[in-house]
Amino acid sequence: MFREKLKREIEIIKSNGLYRFLREKRDNILDFSSNDYLCLSKHPEVIEAVKEGLKYGVGSTGSRLTSGNINHQRLEEKIAEFKETERALVYSSGYATNVGVISALCKKGDLILSDKLNHASIIDGCRLSKADVLIYNHCDVEHLANLIEENWKKYNNLFIITDGVFSMDGDVAPLRDLKKIADEFNAILIIDDAHGTGVLGDGKGTLKHFNLKPSDNIIQIGTLSKAIGGLGGFVCGIDEVVEYLINTSRSFIYSTALPPHVVEGCIKAFEIIERGDVVKELQKNIKIANGIFKKNGFIKENNLTPIYPFIFKEKTMLIAEHLIKNNIFCVGIRYPTVPKGLERIRVSINVSHKKEDFELLCEKIKDIYQNHLNQTTNNPYPLYSRLFSQ
């Protein structure tokens, strides 16, 4: 009975065009899908650090509160120094960090104000918390301020939660304005800087990009699996936040600690970022991509980040499949990850890409659109527009 029920559910998913499957990544493919923005996952120094870390063994063998606390505090000290905060705490993943931090800190009688386009891990953390949740329109500071003005007196604590860089659109949260609102209403600002760390603010993240200093009412969350090139997540802020999370955050307490050789690789990755060269190289590539993508009509405005959504709506998955046949890997993103009508190819660039790669991508998409989708107009592909009101 259970097997048949699952089969029916899977068929419904397929009939709705929402079926997902795992695809093996080929070595000879031009990859515009990876979040390894600085290509540190394959950096020789990082690999050597990982090899050296194997002296501790392959796994950590337990949670941080039992047998798993090996070299992890060295990484936390490096992150705290890098983010200019009092302290940091490492989790097993970025997802586990958001879920664990939000569900531990936000309680019954509190109010969370969450950006409409926040990552799924933030949404799940809000759901697991006992706090009430209100959603403000994407990056709409006025809407956020109105919601707080109408509700703040009813609650014990206020939490404003936002991505620093939004993973599906590549735009940057208005942190300067969000910080002003947080200060005015004595709220806590939680920033998930998964896609900002290593990218903006000389690599230090979105807060540094706006020249904002860490303060008692700011909590920064990040991942070690994107620009850092490793695995895991982290939270950083004041000492008391970390101390509290060690004692209350379930996804920290009850998870096996990161493998120590991964920890060593992440420490080395932060050291490389601090040198500055690799971040400058990424920013140089973003400028080159901006020019080519704008010239070909795929974007209107220059990007600050390496994430480019090319919105093709219902044609998205067909274009993605044709690109793979041409040895170009770009993931098609559809509902529920993005709203219906805003399906897109998510183009993610990194320091290894060359000008010719960006030109080839544009050329292949135009060829697919005109020769495989039977489009004959001179400019069939859409200009990129942020249709967040829909």
Rank of each mutant, 00 (worst) to 15 (best):
L200I: 13
K268A: 12
S60G: 09
V199E: 09
G291I: 00
I191L: 13
G109L: 06
R8L: 12
N146E: 03
I135K: 13
I190K: 07
G109S: 05
D193Q: 07
K284V: 05
S215H: 06
R8K: 06
A187K: 04
H322V: 08
F298K: 03
E86C: 00
N98D: 06
K107Q: 07
I324N: 02
I311A: 08
K154T: 00
H72P: 05
S215Y: 08
V99K: 01
V351Q: 03
Y95N: 00
P260W: 09
A269G: 12
V235C: 09
G53E: 15
W152D: 00
K180Q: 10
E356W: 11
K5M: 13
I47D: 02
R87W: 01
R275C: 09
C236Y: 01
A173Q: 01
E301L: 09
R346W: 14
P339S: 14
D171C: 07
Q390F: 14
I190G: 07
G57I: 14
S249T: 10
S15V: 09
N146V: 07
D177M: 11
H353E: 07
E184L: 15
R386I: 08
C362S: 11
H43W: 08
I79P: 01
I10G: 03
P339H: 14
I122L: 11
M1H: 14
E184V: 15
Q370I: 14
D177E: 11
A320W: 09
A187W: 01
G291Y: 10
E314N: 04
G229K: 02
I319S: 01
K7D: 14
R3W: 13
P174E: 10
S389G: 14
I333R: 10
D357I: 05
I272P: 02
C236H: 01
R250E: 14
E149P: 00
I238K: 06
W152R: 00
L105I: 02
L373I: 01
D202C: 05
C330V: 13
I333P: 08
C236V: 01
D177G: 07
F159G: 04
N211W: 07
F252V: 12
N157Y: 02
K213N: 03
V235Y: 08
R8E: 09
R3G: 10
L318D: 09
D110K: 12
T206R: 05
G332S: 12
N146R: 02
N211S: 14
W152G: 02
